[in-house]
């Protein structure tokens, strides 16, 4: 099995689904730009090259460049999905999503419900999120909690290349609108990814470590940090369960509660702003449903409630990391 990057895994998933189903289309900014140039200059495949190679293989009818008008092309993708196509639309940075909230929150998310189940909207909106890229406040936010807040949307936050491929194929085959969050710092992360197509079901958490003392719930890129922290703590005799929910909507509350019942301690690691976040959501869930199992207060490892800073030193200090998780677990154990 070959090692593939997060970028390659997503690219392979889309390409395999495009080969399988001619209704799958790709559109967004700079997929096609550069076409006709030499080598690296030929059809850029998006700002960070995730869709590179799709234009040469599938051509201009299935791989489209759009104007820099998110409200127009996301709206068009939602409409296309309602007619039976399966667009994979890329909205470069999730930070720009505000201009097309109506198309997503009010249209895509509502069609199935408001038409009594007679309409489906099989669109995937790919978008980059997250800090650590030195891209400042307007290109570094997480924002998946906002989409999780809206019923009718599915929200995917893949934590590794293997996860990304299986979840992307699942997203494309799903008949509901799916928001697919790609962490821009992870594109070059590598692991073994099967060549064959495969799917990972939504709403099923993955336990990447299993332990007795503390449950660490982590999202997206934070799963890797949580694993590092768990391995460090394991050497000190503190054994952690690391739970990757994979999707925030649907959300596997059952496995979270099971793990907390077993360990009695909970640390939540979320790169999003702490207010109205997945961290606060999981805290609320456990406080209501598993309070009696808790041996220590719930700990949240999140950034402070501020915009993502641009100064590298401040950005590093702002983001959660393995050391901060280790410290939170030790506090929970104290």
């Amino acid at each position: 099995m070959a090692k593939k990057s997060y970028r390659q895994a997503i690219n392979e998933a889309i390409a395999q689904e495009m080969r399988r189903d001619e209704n799958v289309l790709v559109w967004g900014e700079d997929n096609v730009g550069g076409a006709g140039g030499d080598g690296e200059q030929d059809a850029w495949g998006g700002v960070l090259g995730v869709t590179k190679g799709l234009y040469p293989e599938f051509g201009s009818e299935r791989v489209l460049d759009t104007p820099i008008s998110e409200s127009a092309f996301i709206g068009a993708a939602v409409g296309a999905a309602a007619t039976g196509l399966r667009p994979v639309a890329e909205l470069m940075f999730v930070d720009f999503m505000g201009v097309c909230f109506d198309q997503i929150f009010n249209q895509a998310a509502k069609f199935r419900y408001m038409f009594g189940g007679n309409a489906v909207t099989p669109i995937v909106v790919r978008t980059m999120y997250g800090g650590g890229f030195r891209a400042a406040s307007q290109h570094s936010q997480c924002l998946y909690p906002m989409f999780t807040h809206v019923p009718g949307l599915k929200v995917v936050v893949p934590s590794s290349p293997y996860e990304a491929k299986g979840l992307m194929i699942q997203a494309i085959r799903d008949d509901d609108p799916v928001m697919f969050f790609e962490h821009k710092v992870m594109y070059d992360d590598e692991e073994e990814v099967p060549d064959d197509p495969y799917t990972i079901p939504f709403g099923e958490a993955n336990l990447t470590r299993e332990g007795d003392d503390v449950t660490i719930v982590a999202f997206g890129r934070m799963v890797g940090f949580a694993n590092q922290a768990a391995d460090t703590l394991d050497k000190e005799g503190i054994s952690c369960t690391v739970l990757d929910p994979r999707t925030t909507s649907p959300f596997d509350t059952e496995t979270i509660l099971e793990c907390v019942e077993e360990t009695g301690r909970l640390v939540i690691v979320d790169e999003a702003n702490p207010r109205c976040s997945m961290a606060s959501d999981v805290s609320g869930l456990v406080a209501q449903e598993a309070f009696k199992a808790l041996k220590a207060p719930i700990r949240m490892v999140t950034p402070p409630h501020t915009p993502v800073p641009f100064a590298p030193e401040l950005e590093d200090a702002y983001l959660p990391n393995a050391d901060k998780i280790v410290a939170a677990v030790r506090t929970a154990m104290a």
Binding site: G166, P194, D196, P197, Y198, I200, E210
Partner: peptide, 16 residues
């Protein structure tokens, strides 16, 4: 071991 289980689950997720 857990990787053996993980291998089986990954196998079962493949199309077909």
């Amino acid at each position: 071991g857990r990787d053996m289980m993980e291998d089986v689950l990954k196998f079962k997720r493949l199309d077909g």
